[in-house]
Simulated assay, not measured.
Amino acid sequence: MLKNILSNNLNKKILIMPVGLSGSGKTTLYKEISGDFDIEYISFDSIRIEMFEKKTGKKVKNKEDYREAFRFVSENKIKLLPVAKEKLLKTDKKIVYIDNTNLKRKSRNKFLCVADDFLKIAIFFEPDLKKCINRQFTQNRDKTVPVSVLLEQYRMIEPPELGEFDIIIRKRLKDGENCCNNWSFKRSR
């Protein structure tokens, strides 16, 4: 469904913003569509690593290094949003994918407000706490998120609304299912 929407709107600038818990399939979705489209990938995890490496001179090579980078950026109150916004504004690519949890309307709006001329698509990964927790321990992940963080994410998630986005695609996780199955679709008029 998403590939069809992208193929039929290549003359427009498109912003794809997944909304979902850690481990819900946001990065997997990017990997699945990036082979077919030239996409600017803006990952808050990647920005966090870049900032950590730039400030400390250390390289992030494994999960423990990532945890150190996360702590460093948090403790030093390093702002990631301005870097992400700059990447959005400087890109010459037609499609931009914002890989972050994007859980709250207020935090999404800080990004969406600079993308007025984009077709805005939300991919809402409906929260399944049990499956997201299991994915932290069963998949070969480059990073894991503590259960306490997933519980906090679950508590604070605000589903996307058509007032924010032009198109909302809902994704429900199923056991043993590929990321890009089981979609539903809603479009503003």
Rank of each mutant, 00 (worst) to 15 (best):
residue 89 L to C: 10
residue 156 M to L: 13
residue 156 M to E: 13
residue 121 I to H: 07
residue 136 Q to N: 04
residue 164 E to F: 07
residue 171 K to F: 10
residue 83 V to D: 02
residue 83 V to G: 01
residue 72 F to D: 08
residue 77 K to H: 13
residue 127 P to Q: 04
residue 164 E to I: 03
residue 181 N to P: 00
residue 125 F to H: 08
residue 171 K to A: 10
residue 153 Q to A: 10
residue 83 V to Q: 01
residue 99 D to H: 07
residue 81 L to D: 09
residue 141 R to M: 02
residue 150 L to K: 04
residue 178 N to S: 14
residue 70 F to N: 12
residue 123 I to A: 06
residue 149 V to K: 04
residue 157 I to R: 04
residue 156 M to W: 02
residue 148 S to G: 05
residue 130 K to V: 12
residue 163 G to S: 06
residue 167 I to Q: 07
residue 90 K to S: 15
residue 183 W to M: 14
residue 143 K to R: 14
residue 87 K to Q: 13
residue 78 I to W: 00
residue 156 M to F: 06
residue 90 K to R: 14
residue 91 T to S: 15
residue 97 Y to E: 09
residue 153 Q to V: 05
residue 105 R to N: 07
residue 163 G to I: 00
residue 80 L to F: 01
residue 136 Q to E: 06
residue 76 N to S: 06
residue 108 R to F: 07
residue 76 N to C: 03
residue 131 K to F: 12
residue 110 K to N: 09
residue 154 Y to Q: 01
residue 133 I to Q: 08
residue 88 L to T: 14
residue 89 L to E: 12
residue 113 C to L: 05
residue 107 S to H: 10
residue 72 F to W: 11
residue 145 V to M: 08
residue 124 F to W: 05
residue 168 I to D: 10
residue 117 D to N: 14
residue 136 Q to T: 10
residue 102 N to D: 07
residue 115 A to V: 07
residue 98 I to R: 01
residue 125 F to Q: 06
residue 151 L to T: 01
residue 122 A to T: 06
residue 118 F to C: 15
residue 97 Y to F: 15
residue 173 L to P: 01
residue 153 Q to M: 05
residue 89 L to P: 04
residue 166 D to I: 10
residue 77 K to E: 13
residue 120 K to M: 13
residue 157 I to G: 01
residue 120 K to I: 13
residue 162 L to C: 13
residue 152 E to P: 03
residue 118 F to G: 11
residue 178 N to W: 09
residue 112 L to T: 11
residue 132 C to F: 01
residue 102 N to P: 06
residue 185 F to E: 14
residue 146 P to V: 00
residue 143 K to H: 09
residue 178 N to M: 13
residue 184 S to P: 02
residue 143 K to F: 05
residue 185 F to P: 04
residue 101 T to R: 00
residue 107 S to F: 12
residue 84 A to K: 03
residue 147 V to Y: 05
residue 150 L to E: 02
residue 94 K to Y: 09
residue 96 V to H: 03
residue 112 L to E: 03
residue 147 V to G: 03
residue 168 I to V: 15
residue 174 K to S: 04
residue 86 E to Q: 12
residue 135 R to M: 02
residue 155 R to I: 06
residue 130 K to F: 12
residue 117 D to Q: 11
residue 113 C to W: 00
residue 165 F to T: 05
residue 136 Q to F: 04
residue 96 V to K: 05
residue 69 A to T: 03
residue 100 N to M: 03
residue 147 V to W: 01
residue 138 T to F: 09
residue 114 V to L: 11
residue 148 S to L: 06
residue 110 K to P: 00
residue 110 K to E: 07
residue 119 L to W: 07
residue 140 N to P: 01
residue 74 S to M: 14
residue 88 L to I: 15
residue 106 K to N: 07
residue 75 E to L: 12
residue 120 K to L: 12
